[in-house]
Nucleic acid binder design. Structure first.
Lengths: 196, 196
DNA sequence: GCGATTATTATGAACGTTCATTCGAAACCA
DNA sequence: TGGTTTCGAATGAACGTTCATAATAATCGC
């Protein structure tokens, strides 16, 4: 089976490839990135990529799942730290804003890429686990009386829609200021729209 | 070999190609669509496409600009028919919802496609003319005292973010019911978030 | 009107390039 | 020594684009 080399910790090459893929996919897009491009950026040979991954699509899928897992982890941490729907959802928006500033590429690839076009079979972003968890937070808020009763999908869209729109504006370079500067204002508007 | 009907109005072929491109680009994406694919769907030869357009990218650009122009026309009509920011913005959301149901592909290509990847040089969607007009409506609403004073970009994101989010949910097949069914609820939430 | 001539449009096989993927050989480690 | 990992040139398929050819429309001389 696989033996970790002494100098190179296990998974280090996989990691280098995934990091390079994230950078290239967000900069130029999946289809404008060739496998030799990925090899050059990751400082690895083409053959090595095919040793660690089935094909190009497999790299994109591993990257996507890894990012989604990280996001789900953040949401779980928030669910543990915050009790009310109000506090949970506000923490979600704050986290998304900070992540957009600190991990631009990751956010871009998660929220903005058209995964359907290069990851057939993968569920669309807005029915992924993190987005479902966010809808759960909202649903629980309605059950607890914090949020007005209404269609959960609509409530979730209204609560997070403004923030998500601002994130894509920021990713597109249309918004100049860092997102966290807008957090208080955005959240006040968002909560007002569905608060009981 | 060439046998076009005797009475082909000018621009009919261009139109056929653009319609086919819209269908294929939204179904499979720009990069998963070959020029022969487009020729087959439009019932036109490959050479004919290159006679009417500079290259594949030129087809996508013509399609994009034509859709944006149509959208801008809708917004102008709304600006003429409605006087207040409230009525204008509500009419915008209603129009977007109806268009999503009646012209799914057009909406998908306008709002959901990553134009940056195949139309380099084109401005991102959210700084396109229609989106700027929508921000103008909001800004005028603030000037007239209908909307609380705040950063115009944030206000616009909050007002339209929920509706746009619901549209992408609908395009992704995550939302089962037609969007107009949700109009009253979404608009009530949206307006409440920024109303003076 | 009407043939002759030119301009426009249509066609699809052929071309050259690019790309994802393979594979045999080398390097590395246990 | 044997299993694992790395390498990059070779391969073949697919793609965007071109072009010689032909059909149609427009223009013109008369």
């Amino acid at each position: 089976m696989a033996r970790p080399p002494a100098n190179v910790p296990p998974g280090q090459v996989r990691e280098k490839i995934i990091v390079a893929a994230l950078q290239l996919f967000t900069q130029r897009g999946y289809f404008n990135t060739s496998v030799p491009d990925m090899a050059r950026t990751a400082q690895v040979s083409v053959g090595s990529i095919y040793h660690h991954f089935k094909d190009k699509e497999d790299v994109a899928r591993a990257l996507y799942l890894s990012l989604m897992e990280g996001m789900q982890g953040e949401l779980s941490r928030i669910a543990e730290a915050q009790a009310t729907a109000h506090d949970r959802c506000r923490a979600v928006v704050a986290m998304l804003f900070e992540l957009t500033e600190s991990s631009r590429d990751a956010m871009d690839f998660m929220l903005y890429a058209k995964h359907r076009e290069f990851l057939p079979g993968e569920r669309p972003v807005c029915s992924s686990q993190p987005f479902e968890t966010m809808r759960d937070f909202v649903q629980q808020g309605m059950d607890r009386g914090e949020i007005r009763h209404m269609d959960a999908m609509v409530a979730s869209a209204c609560l997070f829609g403004g923030a998500l729109r601002l994130i894509t504006a920021r990713l597109d370079g249309v918004l100049a200021e860092p997102l966290p500067d807008k957090l208080d204002l955005v959240w006040e508007c968002a909560w007002r729209s569905i608060a009981a």
